[in-house]
Each structure stands twice: as structure tokens, then as C-alpha cells.
Design a protein around this nucleic acid. Sequence first.
DNA 1: CGATGATTTCAGTGTCGACCGAAGGGGATC
DNA 2: GATCCCCTTCGGTCGACACTGAAATCATCG
Lengths: 154, 154
Amino acid sequence: MSVGRETRLSAWIERFAAHFAEEGIPLIGGRILGYLLVCQPVERTAAELSQELEASSGSISTNLKYLVNVGLVTKRTRRGRQAAEYRINEKAWSGFVQRKLDAIASVQVLTEDGMRLLSGDPERAMRLRTVDHLYGWLSAELPALWERRPASPK
Amino acid sequence: MSVGRETRLSAWIERFAAHFAEEGIPLIGGRILGYLLVCQPVERTAAELSQELEASSGSISTNLKYLVNVGLVTKRTRRGRQAAEYRINEKAWSGFVQRKLDAIASVQVLTEDGMRLLSGDPERAMRLRTVDHLYGWLSAELPALWERRPASPK
DNA sequence: CGATGATTTCAGTGTCGACCGAAGGGGATC
DNA sequence: GATCCCCTTCGGTCGACACTGAAATCATCG
């Protein structure tokens, strides 16, 4: 007897959430993301998410607030409906990734400052220089790479 | 009365450690990295680090073990010296950064699996497809970018 | 082989953050 | 304006992890 598609999707959502948990996103936040990426229909209320993901209403609320804040989820309210509907904002994902790349390259600000502090002593600055050059290169190339990013498929 | 260079370097080390603390590296580990990048002479014993950074011997030991493990610090023992000497391995920094980039691109494995699970339903796969394309592009371009990385300065 | 000096191990402490669930507040409908 | 949901807020619990300091371990030298 085969495992149903929904069951396999649940397992996939869990893997998805686990990955982002390692990057500091709360487990429940990751589950919401994974779920909203594949659910049908695309919009869900907080109460539905709470039930589907077996998480407390408080956790759902907190995490939705966070996800809406970073732009990955969109909140929609409708007249005549007390329940707000949430959906994934997949277009915002590139901004999300871009922030990660920026975070890596931003170390260059630090290494640059360090080089300045050691400017009178080239010998002593050698170790930092190696690191600074690496980040300097990244700071130049990553934004350039990002420019060449193709538009998302229609 | 001006602030001495060493004082400013201490402040810089603290900023350096704070940055990597946000990325999950323990504060003391970050301090060790920053300190070993700029100290003179370049090699230090665990006891010296403990004193300079005002951290317990246990913390220093744990963090050095971790940093040696990921390759950012090199341990050297010498005959006739009971104290091992540690120094920064600035050449390993590129591997450190590369692992970060790989971690970002590795999401493509997840999105790809998800696409497979939704293969029978293109409509439903649309949201994931947008995300998958982004990571697919990254998975292709980041390694290519890395190839063009220049050697560190002599 | 014992003494010495250094490092590693380990149990204990404190902090921080995710999560829960009950209480409170805000709309919408009647 | 009363009722009914739904969402958010908030106190409390739990587990994870960084850090400490003392004890155990290890290496060197006399």
C-alpha cells in the first residue's frame, strides 16, 4: 500500500522547515513557508495553518507576523471576512536570498576597518589582508552576479 | 588624550566577534579569530588567549577545538614545549565562505524534490517553480563565480 | 618515576528563545 | 449592543547552548 501524495508532501515540508531552522528560522515558521508553497488553495487563514501544522495559535501568529514582516508571506483582509488570509509571496524570495549574500559580503566592512587600524604596520596586516582581499572580491562580484539574474519564469 | 591602537583593536575584535556571533559562531570563538588575525607575534598558546580575552580555559579549549576542526586555526606542537601554539590559517577562509555559499544554493535540492512531488499538477507547482528557478540559477552560477576567484595576494 | 605546567573534560549555572495555551481585544453579523 | 469568531498578546515552561571553574589527563623535564 503506497504512501499518499499528501503524506509525502508533509515529509517534504518537514525537511524544508528543518533546513531553514538551521539558518535560524523557527521551526514553525519554516513549516508555514513550506506549507504555503504547496497547499491548495493557495490562501489559508491562521486557524487553518494552526490545525494543519498542529501548532498553537500563538506560535502561528508570531511566525506569520515575522514572515509578513520579511515579505515572504502576504496578508490579505477582505471586507465581510473576519479571518485574514495568508499566502506565500514567492516573488520576495530573491530579496530573501539577496540579504543572505549581502550578509556574507558585509564582512568586508570589518576587514577594511581592521586594515585601516593596521595601516602603519604592513607586516602585521598580512593575515588580515588575505581575508580582506577575499571579501573585497566578493563585495564586487556578488552584486554584479545579482544583476545578471534572470526574471522568474512566466 | 588619544585612545591607543591596542584599545581600538580590542574594540575591533569585539565587533568582529559580534558579527560572527550572529552567524552562529560562539562569541569567544569569534574573539579568538579576530585576535589571531591581528596579534603580534602570530602564534599564541591557549593560556595566553585565555588571559588576553579574559575567557575561561575551558571555553578557549572548546572553541579552539572547533576552529581547528573547521580549519580556520592551525595547531602546532613543538618538541620540548608543553604548550601548543595556535595561529590563524587565513588561507582556509575561502573554504569557510564557500561553505556558506553552498549552504544557500543547497536549497535547490529541496525545491527540486518538491517539484517532483508536484509533477502531476503544474498549476499547483507554480509557486514552488518560481523559487526553484531562483535556486537553480544560483546553483549554476555560484560555483562558476567561485572558479573565477583570484588567488590571494602574495 | 615524580614533579611541574599545560590542556582537555565535565558537571553545573545562567541565559535565551521557541513554543504553548489562556486571556483579552477587535471585527462582523444579527 | 450582544454574540460569535478569530487573532494577538502575554505569562510560563521547556530545552538548548555558551560559559565557567575544578578535576582529570597528558606531556615534558629533572
